[in-house]
Design a protein around this nucleic acid. Structure first.
Lengths: 223, 223
DNA sequence: TAGATTGTTAATCGATTAACAATC
DNA sequence: TAGATTGTTAATCGATTAACAATC
C-alpha cells in the first residue's frame, strides 16, 4: 500500500500516465461499482475489460501505471480496487464545486444526483442576473459572481462548472481564475484561454452530436 | 470537389480515419465559425491550430484524410472549409432528434440552443411517466415511449438522446434500437449494451469531474 | 521575385497488444 | 497439482511531428 502510494506519486510526478489511461480508470470505477452492487466480490481483467470492450491486457497495463492491485490466479477484489482507483483519481476526498450560470442547463446540473458519488457537491452557485441573485435553487443560494473570490476561499472551492452562454464564458472563466479556481468544466461551446496551470475540460453537446452523426452517416465500426 | 467527395467516401469506406481526427474536425469547425464571425476571410493551419493548441502539421494532416481544401501560399478560405467539414461530418443535412427522459437534464437539453447549428433539432420527446405524457415542453409534445417506433419512422428520426436515470437506460436503449434508431447519445452513467451497428456516445458528467479532479490533484501539464 | 503556406512523405514518438514467467 | 490470472517485457501498431518540394 505504501508501495502503491509511492508509485502513484512517482507516476503523477513523472507524468508518464497517458490521459486516455485516466479516462479508462473512471470507466473501470463505474463498472466496479456495478459489479459490487450485483454481489461480485472479485473480478478479473478479462471480465472488467469485457464489460467495456477493452482487452484484458489493457486493463492490467492501465492499472500497472499506479501500482499492483491484483492477485495472480485470483483477480482483483472489487472493493479494494474501487478504493485504489478513488485514491488515484483523488475522489476519495470531498470536492466542493462552484457552478456559474443558472440557466436551464445550470439548474439541471444543480439537481444532478450523479455528482455525489465521488465527493463532488455543489457548494455555491453564481450568476450575474440580478433577478437570480439571492434566490435559492435546489437548496443552494445564488450569489453575485462578483463575490466569487471571497466565497470560493471561504468554502475551499477549487473546481467550477461554467454553464453560461458562449459569449460570456471567457470573462466568467477569467473571474474564476482570479478567485483561485484550479479546474474548470466548461459547457459553453468555446475554447477558453486560460493560464496553463488551470485545468480545463470542455463538454460541447453539439460536438458530441456531430461525432454521432458522422459515425452513423459513415457506419463506423463500434469503438 | 468531386475529387474531395471521392476521397471522402473512400476514407469513410476504408475507415482509415482515426476517431481523434473526427473529434478535432468538430473543433476546427467551431473555431472557423468564430473566425468568420470575427470577419476573417481566410485562415492557415498555423492559426487554426494555434487557437486550439494543436500543431499546424496536425491540422493539415487531419484535413488531408478527406481531400485537399487549402491553397498553398494562401491558406484556407474559412467559409469553404466550413462547408467542407460540414459535408464530412454529415451536418449539412438535417438530423431530427428524439429525446427520452424529461427530468431536469432532459428538459434543459430541449431548451438548448446550441444544437441548432448543424442541423440538429429535437423532433420528438418521450417519457414513461403518465404525468408527463401529453404535456408540452419548449413547444414539443411529450409522447409515450411505447409509441417511439411509429413516431421515429414518421419523422425520420435516426438519432436519440437518452436522459433517463441509470437503471432505466438499458431498456430505453433497447426500445430505441427496436424503433430503428441508429445512434444514441447517452447521458446515463452506464455502459449500454447495444448491437454493434448502433453507434453510441456516452457523456457522464461525474466522469468528467473525476478527470478534472485528477488533473488538478496531480497538477498535470495542460492538454 | 520573395514570402507564405499547402499537401505529403519519412521519422519519431507513444499507446496497445501479445506473450509469458511468476504466483496463488 | 492443475488452472487461472496477474504484472511486466517485448513486439506491434497507430498517431503525431518534422521536413520539404510544390504552389500561389
Amino acid at each position: 500500500m505504501s508501495e502503491a502510494k509511492n508509485k502513484l506519486e512517482q507516476a503523477a510526478a513523472d507524468l508518464q500516465v497517458p490521459k486516455a489511461v485516466v479516462s479508462r480508470l473512471s470507466l473501470y470505477l463505474r463498472e466496479l461499482q456495478h459489479l459490487v452492487r450485483d454481489g461480485h466480490e472479485t473480478t478479473s481483467s478479462t471480465q472488467l475489460g469485457g464489460l467495456l470492450g477493452f482487452t484484458d491486457a489493457q486493463v492490467r497495463k492501465d492499472l500497472a501505471y499506479f501500482g499492483q492491485f491484483g492477485y495472480p490466479g485470483i483477480g482483483y477484489r472489487c472493493s479494494e480496487l474501487i478504493d485504489a482507483i478513488k485514491r488515484i483519481l483523488g475522489t476519495n476526498q470531498a470536492w466542493p464545486l462552484a457552478i456559474v450560470g443558472l440557466g436551464n442547463l445550470g439548474r439541471a446540473l444543480m439537481g444532478y444526483r450523479g455528482f455525489r458519488h465521488g465527493g463532488f457537491q455543489i457548494a455555491a452557485a453564481f450568476d450575474v442576473d440580478p433577478a437570480k441573485i439571492g434566490k435559492t435553487v435546489e437548496g443552494i443560494q445564488i450569489f453575485d459572481l462578483a463575490d466569487v473570490d471571497r466565497i470560493a476561499k471561504e468554502r475551499g472551492i477549487r473546481l467550477a462548472i461554467i454553464a453560461v452562454p458562449a459569449p460570456e464564458a471567457q470573462k466568467v472563466a477569467d473571474a474564476l481564475v482570479g478567485a483561485g479556481i484550479e479546474g474548470v468544466l466548461n459547457f459553453a461551446p468555446v475554447t477558453l484561454n486560460l493560464p496553463k496551470q488551470v485545468q480545463t475540460i470542455g463538454v460541447d453537446l453539439a460536438i458530441e452530436l456531430e461525432q454521432l452523426a458522422f459515425a452513423v452517416a459513415n457506419q463506423l465500426p463500434q469503438t
